[in-house]
Nucleic acid binder design. Structure first.
Length: 749
DNA sequence: TTTAGTAAG
């Protein structure tokens, strides 16, 4: 078979005479010469060697343009060659030499590349050709904030490099390690790299680390930045590249010791911004009005409307459907307006609808229809939708806030930042020129919006983070080099929690228990509960409960079928409380062989349950590795053992029933109520709760009844009467102590 | 008598 491409190649490098001349030069070298020049012998060629850390774009491109894949020794495929041409058109390609020059002369560099610049796929490859990590037995890591991104980019880059995914190019995310000893380029979630740092504190297996999407400032990215900065001092051979879309470059440069900054333009279309002339009283009304205006007056093109939450989104969709019905009745010309909701808890099949084609015109020559996607800020970063031409931005989103004084994380509808507003507007310019309607005044944009959203580390409970940092060997948290330091009070709260859980001793040193706890990808309270369950011999059951507590709510309750859903849920309920209900639900799911129909009929979220199953397997493996007993409890003691384990982890989240009939939380005496979703109907004297939610009232959600004496037995360090405020709970506990002393002295007699 | 922005380990 004559292969056309090879034939052409022969003619191109052509020059048969030249080849023959060369072959005649020296008999000794003739074989080598032939291998070098004869394309039919190309597979015998040794790939041209690049010198690590000293390559130029031209040298690297020559190899990329060649016939043999330097990483596998195989012939490049036609598919590779096709993709290569497209890669060369990416904006980042024009900056390859500049990038290499910066990498050669600096340990750390910052790279800002707008959407469509190709930075996430190309920069790691530029580095692979330059670093030659395989010769050093090392890898290059590129982190992503999200699992899907790590996975899909890795697959794309494996194609681009003409290798099999999981071999030279791989990825590593929770539940899936798709790498091999051959791997030289590894995409991974930022959290995963942080996990690796716990066993390999200097990250010795990497010769270069790329932190991508740094502007998102996830908890893990922030910690990694501090950590890597520290590692860099002791590992001069480690290259570090911080990449992001829009980045507060001055702040980043200052933090990274004035590292040089490379800017790469993106490939997007201009978006025209329109502001409201005056402040809107009700942004939801204004948003719906704007949708209708666009639909009736503007050119074809889909709309993306940002709202704050599920309920608001469903409500807006309903109203838009009504509006559409009246419009269609009023005119036969106008196209259909089809609202599509989008938020994370929506079942995947419904999420897919955002990619459907817009509705067709209602007849020949009539106006086409239009999709309007009504979304949370999931569409701001996590999901990109092509075909959006109009964006409506009311300027709000739900954001997590943490109040260390009352130790509560809650969600609050808050104004977005300028960075967020720009990101939202950008969503209109992905396919062609677009428009963004901001439902606030320009004045308000300039004066009221913060430049950047507060990073997560400043808005979160840091229990887990502090445990991880301790495990990473960071002893002095107060002086750890955070880009933005969390509030001292937040750190104090975390240290206090870990001390009470006996993960840290009074000097703040990690204890043996703390070492074990840090191994689990769970909140400290859940870790403690698991460890205790081994002692109380019910770890099989507690494992399931922990897994169920670490996934999104499994109980589905559609607005129009509440009663039926509640009735179905009742079959799993147990008098001891909601934790046991979770256990029974999970057990029923397994007993029914994870059947999707069974889930559907019982109003259970299949996705959540499957994910609980995955978590459970992972946690069980960690327990076995740490030699913690995984045992099934004896039936007669089962539920009290489980409740004792719960108490061992959550003794700081206890409420006591007062004579008034209200619950007060322990020590800080907040009035709290049992969440209406709880299966507990009568009011037990003592309850532990999993979380505290602040809505119309202060609610405890997912609660279980316990006994006062357990608190004294299991957590004497917290229930120390010499350090306990006066209150009914204290008096109740003192009565228990007295009774116990009495009965034990009776026994002694 | 009623919540859930997003993501990660």
């Amino acid at each position: 078979m004559i292969d056309n491409t090879r034939k052409r190649k022969w003619d191109d490098t052509g020059n048969m005479q030249n080849t023959i001349d060369k072959q005649q030069k020296s008999n000794d070298n003739s074989l080598n010469e032939a291998i070098e020049t004869n394309p039919y012998l190309a597979h015998l060629r040794k790939p041209e060697k690049l010198i690590s850390g000293k390559t130029t774009a031209a040298q690297a491109e020559k190899i990329e343009n060649g016939e043999i894949n330097p990483f596998t020794g195989r012939h490049f495929t036609q598919k590779y060659k096709d993709i290569l041409q497209k890669r060369r058109n990416l904006p980042v390609h024009a900056h390859r030499d500049k990038f290499l020059e910066l990498v050669h002369n600096n340990q750390m560099i910052l790279l800002v590349g707008e959407t469509g610049s190709g930075k996430t796929t190309q920069i790691p490859q530029f580095l692979v050709y330059d670093e030659q990590p395989q010769d050093k037995g090392k890898m290059i890591a590129c982190t992503q904030p999200r699992r899907v991104a790590a996975m899909s980019v890795a697959k794309r880059v494996a194609d681009e490099m003409d290798v099999n995914i999981g071999e030279e190019v791989g990825y590593s995310i929770r539940f899936e390690d798709c790498t091999s000893p051959k791997t030289i380029l590894k995409y991974m979630t930022d959290g995963m790299l942080l996990r690796e740092a716990m066993t390999d504190p200097k990250l010795t297996r990497y010769s270069a680390i790329i932190l991508d999407e740094a502007h998102e400032r996830t908890l893990a990215t922030d910690i990694l930045m501090g950590l890597i900065k520290k590692i860099a001092k002791n590992r001069k051979d480690l290259k570090i590249i911080i990449m992001s879309a829009t980045l507060d470059s001055e702040k980043f440069q200052k933090y990274f010791n004035d590292a040089p900054l490379l800017k790469v333009p993106g490939r997007t279309f201009p978006v025209e911004i329109y502001y409201s002339p005056e402040a809107e009283r009700n942004y939801l009304d204004a948003a719906i009005r704007t949708v209708i205006q666009i639909h009736t007056c503007e050119e074809p093109g889909d709309i993306l409307l940002f709202l704050t939450g599920e309920e608001e989104i469903e409500d807006a969709c309903r109203r838009l459907r009504d509006e559409n019905n009246s419009l269609m009745k009023a005119s036969t010309e106008i196209g259909e307006l089809r609202p599509i909701p989008l938020y994370s808890s929506l079942p995947p099949a419904l999420q897919q609808k955002i990619f459907d084609d817009p509705p067709p015109p209602r007849g020949p020559g009539k106006q086409p229809g239009r999709k309007v996607i009504v979304s949370t800020n999931i569409a701001e970063t996590s999901l990109t939708i092509d075909g959006i031409v109009y964006v409506i931005d009311p300027g709000f989103s739900k954001q997590k806030v943490y109040n260390p004084r009352i130790r509560i994380e809650s969600l609050l509808v808050s104004p977005i930042s300028k960075a967020s507003a720009k990101q939202r507007a950008g969503r209109a310019g992905r396919t062609r020129e677009g428009k963004c309607f901001r439902l606030y005044t320009e004045q308000s944009y300039i004066k009221d919006l913060n430049e950047q959203t507060y990073p997560e580390i400043m808005r979160s409970n840091l229990g887990s983070v502090v445990l991880q940092l301790k495990k990473l060997g960071i002893d002095d948290l107060v002086h750890f080099d955070f880009m933005d330091a969390p509030a001292p009070e937040t750190l104090m709260r975390a240290l206090e929690l870990l001390n009470y859980l006996e993960a840290l001793d009074d000097e703040g040193e990690l204890t043996k228990t703390g070492e074990i706890m840090a191994e689990f990808p769970l909140d400290p309270q859940l870790c403690k509960m698991l460890i205790a369950s081994s002692k109380y011999k019910c770890s099989e059951e507690v494992l399931s409960i922990v897994a169920m507590l670490s996934v999104p709510n499994v109980y589905i309750r559609p607005k129009d079928q509440k009663d039926r859903a509640d009735e179905k849920r009742r079959q799993f309920e147990h008098d001891d409380g909601d934790h046991i209900t979770l256990l029974k639900t999970f057990q029923a799911f397994k007993a029914n062989h994870e059947d999707p129909n069974w889930c559907y009929n019982n109003y259970l979220n299949l996705r959540s349950l499957k994910s609980a199953d995955n978590v459970r397997i992972q946690i069980e493996n960690i327990m076995k590795r740490l030699r913690l007993d995984v045992v099934k409890s004896e039936d007669d003691k089962k539920f009290s053992s489980i409740r004792k384990s719960l108490t061992a982890g959550f003794f700081m989240q206890v409420a006591h029933l007062e004579k008034s009939g209200h619950y007060l939380t322990i020590k800080d005496n907040q009035v709290v109520f049992i969440h209406p979703s709880s299966c507990i109907m009568e009011k037990p004297e003592w309850v532990v709760y999993n979380e505290f939610v602040l809505t119309t009232k202060n609610y405890m959600r997912t609660i279980t009844k316990i006994k006062g004496e357990w608190l004294l037995d299991i957590a004497p360090q917290y229930y120390d009467m010499s350090n306990f405020p006066q209150c009914e709970a204290r008096r109740a506990l003192e009565r228990i102590i007295k009774k116990h002393k009495l009965s034990s002295s009776h026994r002694r007699k």
